[in-house]
Design a binder for these strands. Structure first.
Length: 617
RNA sequence: CGGGGCGUAGCGCAGUCUGGUAGCGCACCUGCUUCGGGAGCAGGGGGUCGGAGGUUCGAAUCCUCUCGCCCCGACCA
């Protein structure tokens, strides 16, 4: 049991103006944290207690599958040069020199250190598999720290690394982490989704991000109850069938006069058609990744359903480009042949072939690619034309005619125009059905709380870790890496809770799950000047404490209102009010998660609270 | 790194345009009253006005430089 009167819990009535997101404001107001610099925070006692509870849960679950290490943050520069990441990380890594002038870095993550231990110590398949983890401070010189504890330059991470003799072993280590992570986040009271992530160019065969929906998040994800979840850059959906228009005239493209109907909404109203029966044209100039100076911009034209939006990340991936900007009017005229508002697929000359596109994506120099130069123009390139699958197989669509104030009817893809390729380049929309279970998609911002990743041999290979297999042959162990952002568990719990309170009309309120709250219950003595209230409060708190419940006794000489507000501010999920009803042998138990208040007789308090704590976990 | 904003008491702010020697609310200390939803009254303590330089008889205020923080974007192993 701890007494509030003896503790340092500096709550604030108002949040500093610098705080924008809910968790940042509330963490400051509740006296959990204080800011020391951009992306640098001190944890005050309350914050440290919550962090410790989270760490304890993480440790307990991780100890079931692995072994805990503690690795140095101070790393020699050479170690990072061995893996090639000294260059790759660039300015994101803090760098310093010691008194002799030797160069050191502050570790952003620990693949290098773990791999160096592995290569020095692991010799045989008999020593595998290994799962090694640690819970430790990471340093990253973020270009823009923000949102309180959500993006910082120094933070706690649980990072784990697995070493296996083969991919079957890696699969098993990965699955163990998947299960452990689900157990950890569930115990922390988070509603999370596991998103299939891009395993990237590392040759990895699997990667999942664990996400919590919150407006403060930096990623956009789509998920459904059937278990489908994906980043918006990857998400797809089933499209409900669209009825095509009947052909007019002889069924071939028919030019119609549509003065002043450049916008999709206008043309749809004018012709009494649906946006899904119209072809939207979006035109970009793209630059390649590793863009050589002076390389010309690449024209990219996307066609998709009138009611769909382009996802530029998807389009970049398809086109082999890194950045897009809208085409200028003269570029529209050159590459498509029409004015904005009346752009369409018919009449585009110099469409790039799919084969050249592959060369482009693989990074071949332009002069090695066939058919990419536009001969007549002398400058500029063939146009990449991408058709979204939402238009594939459709017919009799309406499209711009590349002529001011004119459209075509009866436009049928592939029959009437050719494309470089057909590829998914659109954003999914809220409520569309997911591709695996056909359930409605939920779209929203989310924060990443964990990531598991089949890493492969990137580090064991480059840093020379080798073991002997059953045949006495030297092989390279296969690694997995697995991270959890400790503070993000706390912040996302607060964000989620605050959002629920806000939705119910209560601003600036939250309650933490009992498993990670700094205390499980606050015993509020409404008036310590009434001796019997204080005595009974102390007794109740002692009993709860004896029952292994983490209890904070509010024995301060403050008015009841102040104590209620403070107890709510610090996010403790349960409160016991010792007040007037004591005369009738009763106290109130306030359950902030459910918003209910119950009168309980003195001899039932501990049992009642225990049942609340059990069911809420 | 590009764009925008802000630095005045622990927190929230006014004062800056138009120079005259710093103020309000909350918090804090003392006393009295009050005592179940951030109390009332009275008295009190606390500020190199982010920093440096300059203009001026005089600078929180005007000028120059600089540091820091926040937001949007870029970036994010």
């Amino acid at each position: 049991m701890q007494r509030w009167s003896k503790l340092f819990i500096p709550t604030l009535r108002e949040a500093p103006t610098d705080a924008e997101v809910a968790s940042h404001k509330l963490l400051l107001r509740a006296g959990y944290i204080r800011q020391l610099g951009a992306g640098i925070y001190s944890y005050l006692p309350l914050g440290q207690r919550a962090i410790n509870k989270i760490v304890a849960i993480v440790r307990e679950e991780m100890d079931k599958i692995g072994q805990e290490f503690l690795l140095p943050t101070l790393n020699p520069r050479e170690l990072w040069e061995e893996s090639g990441r000294y260059e790759v990380m660039g300015d994101n890594m803090f760098k310093l020199k010691d008194r002799k002038g030797a160069e050191l870095v502050l570790a952003m993550t620990h693949e290098e250190v773990m791999t160096s231990i592995a290569r020095n110590e692991l010799r045989s398949y008999k020593q595998l598999p290994q799962i090694w983890y640690q819970i430790q401070t990471k340093f990253r010189d973020e270009p823009r720290p923000k949102s309180g504890l959500l993006r910082v330059r120094q933070f706690l991470m649980k990072d784990a690394y697995s070493f296996d003799i083969d991919t079957a072993g890696l699969d098993k280590s990965y699955d163990l982490h998947d299960a452990a992570y689900r157990a950890i986040f569930t115990r922390c009271g988070l509603e999370f989704v596991a998103v299939e992530a891009d395993s990237g160019a590392m040759g990895g065969s699997g990667s999942q991000e664990f996400m919590v929906y919150t407006e403060a998040g930096e990623d956009l994800i789509a998920s459904s109850v059937s278990g489908y979840a994906a980043n918006l850059e990857k998400a797809t959906s089933q499209l409900a069938p669209v009825e095509d228009l009947a052909p007019t005239g002889d069924g071939t493209p028919e030019l119609i006069h549509t003065p002043g109907k450049g916008a999709i909404a206008d043309i749809c109203e004018f012709l009494s058609i649906l946006p899904s029966q119209d072809i939207k044209c979006v035109a970009f100039m793209g630059t390649r990744s590793a863009h050589p100076a002076g390389e010309p911009l690449r024209p990219i034209v996307a066609f998709l359903r009138g009611d769909h939006q382009v996802n530029e990340t998807k389009l970049n991936a398809i086109a082999g480009t890194a950045e897009l900007r809208p085409m200028l009017p003269e570029e529209l005229a050159l590459y498509i042949g029409g004015p904005a508002g009346y752009l369409g697929p018919i009449g585009i000359e110099q469409v790039m072939t799919n084969g050249s596109l592959n060369g482009l994506k693989s990074g071949k120099p332009l002069d090695k690619l066939k058919g990419v130069s536009r001969e007549n123009a002398g400058e500029g390139l063939k146009t990449i034309v991408v058709l979204d699958p939402g238009l594939a197989g459709r017919k009799n669509l309406v499209a711009g005619a590349n002529k001011l104030d004119h459209h075509f009817r009866n436009v049928t893809p592939e029959r009437d125009f050719s494309t470089t390729l057909t590829a998914d380049i659109r954003n999914v929309n809220e409520g569309e059905l997911d591709p695996i279970g056909g359930q409605p998609l939920r779209l929203g911002k989310a924060v990443e709380i964990g990531h598991i990743f089949k890493l492969g041999t990137k580090y064991t290979e480059s840093m020379g870790a080798r073991v002997l297999d059953t045949n006495g042959k030297e092989v390279t162990p296969i690694m997995g890496c697995y991270g959890i952002g400790i503070e993000r568990i706390l912040t996302s719990a607060i964000e989620s809770s605050a959002a629920k309170f806000a939705a119910a009309g209560n601003a600036d309120q939250y309650a933490l799950p009992a498993t990670i709250a700094p205390y499980q219950v606050v015993v509020t003595v409404t008036n310590i000047k009434e001796a019997n209230l204080l005595v009974e409060g102390e007794k109740i708190a002692a009993n709860l404490s004896d029952a292994s419940i983490d209890v904070l006794l509010d024995d301060r000489d403050e008015r009841a209102g102040v104590k209620f507000k403070d107890a709510e501010l610090i996010g403790v999920p349960y409160r016991i009010n010792i007040g007037k009803k004591l005369a009738e042998g009763q106290v109130e138990i306030v359950d902030r998660l459910s918003g209910t208040t119950t009168d309980i007789s003195l001899d039932n308090i501990t049992a009642h609270l225990q049942s609340l704590l059990t069911t809420s976990n």
